[in-house]
Design a binder for these strands. Structure first.
Length: 283
DNA sequence: ACTATATCCTGTATGC
DNA sequence: TGCATACAGGATATAG
C-alpha cells in the first residue's frame, strides 16, 4: 500500500524521465480513474494534450506534475496504483487505466491500478499547489511543517493516537503500515487518547514516524507483492525490516513477545502486548 | 466542528 | 472441485 516513502520513490522515478516532455496522446481506458475530473475523460484528455510536463511534486501521498501554463496533473495511487514508464511497443500491463504518449521516442507513461482506488485529474491553476489538496496537511518531511503546532493539534484531538496519525488533515503521508511501525518504535498503544499523551511523547511518536519512513525510503519502500513497485516495476525491500506490521505471531524484535493483530477501524492493527500495553485510561 | 463509519474495488487466500 | 467469505486499506461522503 503506497504511503509516503513509496510515493516519494515513484516521484523520483518520474522526475528522472518526465520533465520537459510534451504529451502527444492521452488514452483513458477506465473512466473511474478520472472520476475526480470535472467533465470526465473528455476534459482530462483536452487538459493534457499538447502540454509540457514540469518536475513532479508531492504532499503526503498525493503527487502532481505542473503543466506549462498554471495547471497541474494530480495523481493519487490509492491502494494499488502504479506509474510505469515503458516503451510504447512493450506489452501493456493488466489493469492499465490511463496511458500518456509523448512527442518523442522516450517511454510512455502508464497508470496501472488493479483496485481503481487511485485517480488522476487536471487541476486548473494547480501547478503551485492544487486547490483540491488544500485540506491535506504538510507531511513530516515538509520544510514548512511547524512541529510544535502539529504536536498541539494532535493533542487537541479526542481520538486514539493512531486515528489521528492516519488523518491526512492533521499530518499527511502516514498509512496503516508506518503508523503501526512508528507506534511500535515509540512504545505507544494505538488507542491511547491523543489528548492524554504528554507533548514529549507525541514528539517521540512523530520522530519515530519520520525515522521509519526515512529508512523505508532509503530501501526503496515497502513491497509485499506486485501491487507496489517503482516506475520500472521493481519492488522495495523495507518489508523485511518491519517490526510490527503484518508480524502477528512473530517475536517482537525488542522483547520477544508475540506480536498481536487486532481489529481496528475496519482494518488491522499490529502491536507488541508488552512494549505497547493498553493504556489505563480507555478512550 | 468534530468523530466515526460505510463505501468504493479486485485479486488472493482460506474455509467448508 | 467449486463456491462463499474474509481480507488488503487509501480518501471521502455521510451520519451522528
Amino acid at each position: 500500500m503506497p504511503e509516503l516513502p513509496e510515493v516519494e520513490v515513484v516521484r523520483r522515478g518520474l522526475d528522472a524521465v518526465l520533465p520537459g516532455r510534451t504529451v502527444a496522446t492521452v488514452s483513458v481506458l477506465h473512466p473511474r480513474t478520472v472520476r475526480r475530473q470535472p467533465g470526465g475523460s473528455a476534459d482530462f484528455v483536452a487538459g493534457l494534450s499538447g502540454r509540457c510536463l514540469g518536475r513532479p511534486a508531492r504532499r503526503g501521498k498525493f503527487l502532481w506534475l505542473p503543466l506549462d501554463g498554471e495547471d497541474a496533473l494530480v495523481a493519487h495511487l490509492g491502494m494499488s496504483g502504479q506509474f510505469r514508464l515503458d516503451q510504447a511497443a512493450a506489452e501493456p500491463q493488466r489493469h492499465t487505466r490511463v496511458v500518456l504518449g509523448f512527442d518523442d521516442d522516450g517511454p510512455e507513461l502508464r497508470f496501472v491500478d488493479q483496485r481503481i482506488f487511485g485517480g488522476l485529474w487536471v487541476s486548473p491553476q494547480g501547478a503551485e499547489t492544487p486547490a483540491e489538496l488544500a485540506h491535506i496537511a504538510p507531511d513530516l518531511f515538509d520544510p514548512t511543517l511547524d512541529n510544535d503546532q502539529l504536536v498541539a493539534r494532535i493533542r487537541a484531538r479526542h481520538s486514539g493516537i493512531k486515528r489521528v496519525l492516519l488523518d491526512q488533515g492533521i499530518v499527511s503521508g502516514i498509512g496503516n503500515i508506518y503508523a503501526d511501525e512508528a507506534l511500535w518504535r515509540a512504545r505507544v498503544h494505538y488507542d491511547s487518547p491523543a489528548s492524554s499523551l504528554r507533548p514529549a511523547r507525541v514528539r517521540e511518536v512523530l520522530e519515530a514516524a519520520r525515522q521509519v519512513m526515512g529508512e523505508a525510503l532509503a530501501q526503496g519502500g515497502t513491497s509485499f507483492d506486485a501491487l507496489y513497485v517503482n516506475v520500472n516495476g521493481a519492488s522495495g525491500y523495507f518489508s523485511r525490516s518491519l517490526a510490527a506490521y503484518g508480524q502477528a505471531g512473530r517475536a517482537c524484535p525488542r522483547c520477544g513477545r508475540s506480536i498481536v493483530r487486532e481489529a481496528f477501524a475496519n482494518r488491522s492493527s499490529f502491536r507488541c502486548p508488552r512494549c505497547q500495553p493498553r493504556p489505563r485510561v480507555r478512550p
